[in-house]
């Protein structure tokens, strides 16, 4: 597989590692704003990467590029060693394009995403939300999917809410259902896009507890968050984004205790001030 890729792709496009995620030279412009200006970032299988940065630094946009909810204008992405086939932005055709929709659907099915605004489907119960993907995409029988759904609802502590509609659940419960929905696809990678930012402060803890438990299972996770203390606790590596670039990245131990860049130092100091 690697040999085939190496022979058909220029040197710069060879995936540096087989598992996880590799992103090279990711650029994205939204309107007149350069949101991403050449982001390079790797996540190895089993690694938990926290991505920090102030609002507008491009961290959410970058995360959305990994499962192509946002199409990068330039750059290459490998997911589980597979190069995503995209056509970059060009002069004659201004929008970047997906070249292989089957590939994108297959890759998306192997990546679970948890959104800031939960995005549960309001016309389905919690269990229906969780078991829809396994039935529709992974072709499980309804019975098997419901069983799987109940298992993951139990995992996030919501066995008793299987029959509830989203509007009868608190924000924290909705987000835990959304996590169960992502888990029910048995993904190889989990993306979290500011999963606690839309929650009332008293509901943040229950979601972070579920995520901490997942982190302990050796899952590959990319977490965009404002919760610095949580990121420090669960991540194995961390990256700091500023104005569309990775300003600093490294092992969590170094990153949080001994930040090198002035930007990250300011960011962490401001956070400590708020929470002291």
């Amino acid at each position: 597989m690697r040999a085939a890729m190496a022979s058909s792709l220029p040197e710069s496009q060879i995936a540096p590692a087989a598992g996880g995620v590799q992103a090279r030279g990711i650029e994205k412009r939204l309107g007149n704003i350069e949101v991403l200006r050449g982001v390079n970032l790797d996540v190895a299988a089993g690694e938990i990467l926290a991505i920090l940065g102030s609002s507008g630094s491009g961290k959410s946009t970058f995360l959305r590029c990994v499962n192509l909810l946002t199409l990068p204008d330039q750059g290459d992405i490998w997911v589980h060693g597979e190069h995503l086939r995209l056509r970059p932005v060009s002069e004659d055709d201004s929008a970047p394009r997906i070249l292989d929709h089957d590939q994108v659907r297959r890759v998306r099915a192997s990546i679970g995403m948890v959104f800031q605004s939960f995005n549960l489907w309001p016309h389905m119960t919690a269990l229906e939300n969780v078991s829809a993907g396994p039935v529709l995409v992974n072709r499980l029988t309804r019975k098997a999917a419901a069983e799987l759904g109940r298992r993951y609802l139990a995992k996030v502590g919501l066995s008793d809410k299987a029959g509830s509609y989203p509007r009868h659940l608190s924000g924290g419960q909705q987000q835990r259902v959304a996590i169960a929905r992502a888990l029910a696809m048995e993904p190889k990678l989990l993306l979290f896009d500011e999963p606690t930012s839309a929650l009332d402060p008293e509901l943040v803890g229950e979601v972070l507890r579920v995520m901490t438990a997942l982190a302990g299972e050796g899952r590959t996770m990319m977490i965009v968050t404002h919760e610095v203390a949580f990121a420090r606790e669960v991540s194995s590596r961390a990256a700091f984004m500023h104005q569309g670039r990775i300003e600093e990245e490294g092992s969590s131990r170094e990153f949080f205790s001994n930040p090198a860049s002035p930007g990250l130092r300011r960011f962490l100091a401001a956070h400590d001030e708020r929470h002291s």
């Binding site: 890759v107 192997s110 995005n119 309001p122 993907g133």
Partner: peptide, 22 residues
């Protein structure tokens, strides 16, 4: 809400499944 459609896409649903069921 755009997010509810994105949730369907993020799971790998086919566009016609998204149209019909969401």
């Amino acid at each position: 809400s755009r997010g509810q459609i994105e949730a369907a896409r993020s799971l790998g649903l086919h566009p016609w499944q998204t149209w019909l069921l969401i």
